[in-house]
Amino acid sequence: MPYPEELVSPMRAELTRLGVKELRTAAEVDGFANGQKGTALLVINSVCGCAAGGARPGVAMALEHGTKPDAVVTVFAGQDLDAVAKARALFAEYPPSSPSLALFKDGKVVHFVPRHQIEGRAPAMIANDLKAAFDKHCAKAS
């Protein structure tokens, strides 16, 4: 059962104020996925403490890195159910978890951070993991 939107709204904003595009419907996820070229980070956001204490601040720190994905999008687990189901179908070979982070390159997952690799980790550790993946898979900014 979804949480009240007034509770969730600030959690959405922690990412959208960074320029992360929120996908609220299955159609919006389709629009993202269809013909996806280049690199994209997909953040499965959630209400849990490890999203607040690790995933969102970790993503924020990682996006300050010089090399980053061409696009960064997010869906909200437990809230936007159709969008999340559609997003998870993009990496169905991975068990569903939230929060979690998937880095795509030309439509394929090249790096995945499941929930248990976020739990209890400091944002800087999560950011460092993402930065290493960005350096490996994303084009350097000119």
């Binding site: 600030p10 959690m11 922690e14 209400v47 849990c48 403490g49 490890c50 999203a51 607040a52 204490g53 978890s97 929930r115 248990h116 739990e119 209890g120």
Partner: peptide, 16 residues
């Protein structure tokens, strides 16, 4: 901002 739980086991919410 997130949801936090007090008075729960230290492993509450952790994948074990």
């Amino acid at each position: 901002m997130g949801t936090f739980h007090h008075d729960t086991h230290e492993l509450h919410g952790i994948t074990c």
